[in-house]
Write a protein that binds this DNA or RNA. Structure first.
Lengths: 244, 244
DNA sequence: CGGCGTGTTGATCGGTTTCAAGGAAGGTGG
DNA sequence: CCACCTTCCTTGAAACCGATCAACACGCCG
């Protein structure tokens, strides 16, 4: 389909970590021929609601949120997908989930027909998707613990930690001995409202907890959407310890 | 290994709904040869903690709970597996989950080596496992909504509804017109403590909510562990509507 | 400048937790 | 068979955390 396909893939930001990195050379080549890049602005729906889930994608950049919304206005973000993650729901038509771009995103997308024929020819693709699904399941279950058992301050710390770890912003400082990252700065991919929707809280509570982290000196924030974690170790501790 | 293997499978309670029903005849035959039945009393750990996850199983009867426990004493049930469900975690060694028999259970179990060779020969097995994993993921996400957004009374109603639907107890009455089940009676597979661990609540709260359902006439209970839902429709309504 | 969306902060309210006491069911040994 | 124990469950009263209501600050754009 496109003779430059492989070449483009070799330059791809997620070539070494995406689904395409866990399958055979042959499968990756076949996939690369049927794939196309798409950009979407923040807020656009990838699937769910009215949109059919007829295509799948690998996220190249940006963050996608999976939202479970109810007619009565309640809604909960039940998953966040980062670069190299797979987006889509094979083997199910009716999903009452909405996948929405949380930030501007860049996708490497392909149709379900491509997926289907690819898995016929290369069974290991199905295995790679299974491994990702099982990891997503583990993450979902960690998140369930958070929603069921953690306090507001632990929740906010947990989410900030997730972003600090997965979005790899500018590293500002490392521990002299261990080499662990001590300070990182990065853009938050979510609004306060989305924060709250992730954490099962109200946005006011999120705002208060972030303010508390600032006064504790664990984070500083030049702008509301750009934040620096000053002490990753402290943040990690706060993410699993209720204050007493 | 056992000439009676296929015969035993034909008599199996989950032969038509388990993993083995979604794979080819050949794969099912191969699997049946390496499988063995196990019984476990309530409370026994299938894997997690110290026990390695070296075996997988299909539940034949009973309920298994997946528990996420922390050293500080907090714990949350992050999944319930019913008959025909798959138990185990392929492709990961270190899982900080404990799978424990919630009731006495009967398992059809097989080693990870069997799983591995089976999937080499019959790729469709991997697909069947993937489909189950994706369904588990959907359930986990529904549960996340519950933990993040539902009130205590909705949560209790949601869990009772789940049991009423999945455990198919004695049907007592159907709607004359629609034929829908109106009254069901069944044994609760969980203690009040486990109820609370599922729902992100305290056991006292669970107890109060069940009492409230009794005074509303939605359920009656002869014994604490045996319960009759008198009005499934009302229960369904309560499971997604906060009282005002 | 004024208006709008987004985020912060304060005050009060309410649902769930926590603490505490007592009740029901089941098992054991006298 | 009954007293006693243990475990699980129920109920009550008070405390607390996060929700709710409300006002205001900030940045952005026309």
């Amino acid at each position: 389909m496109n003779v430059n396909a492989r070449f483009r893939c070799n330059n791809c930001a997620v070539r070494m970590s995406g689904l395409c990195s866990n399958i055979s050379e042959g499968a990756a080549t076949d996939l690369s021929r049927s794939v196309h890049r798409r950009r979407m602005p923040a807020g656009q729906v990838l699937y769910g609601g009215n949109t059919k889930t007829g295509t799948y994608a690998i996220i190249v950049s940006g963050v996608v949120k999976l939202v479970h919304a109810r007619p009565d206005g309640r809604n909960q973000i039940v998953g966040l997908q980062f670069p190299a993650d797979f987006v889509g729901r094979p083997y199910s038509e009716a999903v009452d989930l909405v996948a929405e771009a949380a930030t501007d995103v860049e996708l490497c997308s392909f149709s379900s027909r491509v997926y289907q024929s690819l898995t016929e020819i290369h069974p290991e693709v199905e295995r790679a998707v299974l491994k990702r699904a099982l990891n997503d399941l583990d993450s979902a279950r960690d998140w369930m613990f958070m929603l069921g058992r953690k306090t507001a301050s632990e929740r906010v710390a947990t989410l900030l930690l997730l972003f600090a770890e997965r979005m790899g912003g500018d590293v500002r400082e490392r521990c002299p001995e261990s080499g662990e990252i001590k300070r990182v700065a990065f853009d938050l991919p979510l609004s306060r409202t989305d924060f709250a929707a992730c954490l099962g809280l109200r946005l006011e509570t999120v705002s208060r907890q972030i303010s508390a982290l600032k006064t504790q000196g664990v984070v500083t924030a030049a702008k509301t959407r750009y934040l620096e974690v000053c002490d990753m170790k402290a943040l990690r501790h706060l993410s699993e310890t209720a204050v007493e």
